[in-house]
Amino acid sequence: MNAILSLIAVIALILIALLGVKTANLHSLFGIAVPYAAMAIFLIGVISRVLKWGRSPVPFCIPTTCGQQKSLPWIKQSKLDNPSTTSGVIGRMLLEVLLFRSLFSNTAFELRNGPKVAYGSTRWLWLGGLAFHWSFLVVLIRHLRLFTEPVPACLSSLEVLDGFLQIGAPGLLLSGVVLLLAVTYLFLRRVLIPEVRYISLAADYFPLFLILSIALSGIIMRYFTKVDIVGVKALTLGLVSFNAVIPEGISVVFYIHLFLVSALLAYIPFSKIMHLGGVLLSPTRNMPNNSRMERHINPWNYPVHVHTYEEYENDFREKMKSAGIPVEKE
């Protein structure tokens, strides 16, 4: 149900763009105004969300320690999984953000008769997630060539690398294919694994369908309808130089693509996609385990009502004395 509703929402977005451009001729709206608005929402939204998180303090030093602590000099510390220094934390975060290290350690269990609980490593989610994020990043970077003139050499070489298979013309780019496969995998596991289906919200399917449609519309433009790339680049260059005009003859598929991208941008600050910023602020990962070595400060630490030793001794003085325990007041 959640999946169907999300699919309907994405189809509605496509129809809005299709009708808006094809029927209502609102090229400027969909080609200029909407992208600007979306970008503004994205930037303001992301920044304010991160600031909002940042405004809440981190009162305690609560890293999840996943390896040997630093203790006696002859015991080997696990510096990445249980870092006690800033450089260790940076290492841990880099591995987490770039290589999804925690997900790499994922396991699956099986309860057999006996009973016997058996565990094994499972890396499909790690692989699918990594393929998805990295291919998405490559696709994103490749798109920078639409916003730069002349195109920097590194972008051109990235594209050469991405198309190393040299299949067809225009050459097949691997990143797009991987992205499509990875999104499909992420969707399929969500509907096929009963536990994951049970926890999935509409907000989990919607971005998948959205990204799938963005990838598909891009692929259609590149390989099938062969969009007027000169026109597209004139528009995109105009957008970044704040001097946009709508060139003639760009196909409606492009406007759909652009509208879906705009929708994604505007959606990000309000969605789980904010995990890209949130992981950097996650106290269980970005803190060193050094709280016995160095004092951390809780900014809102306040005095509390305690039961003092004096009160305790008043309660038990006679019993203490008869048990031979020294007391403050005889």
């Binding site: 926890i199 989990d204 789980k272 904010m274």
Partner: peptide, 9 residues
């Protein structure tokens, strides 16, 4: 509260 993607790991 905000960043869980419900990946199920």
């Amino acid at each position: 509260m905000d960043i869980c993607v419900r990946c199920g790991a």
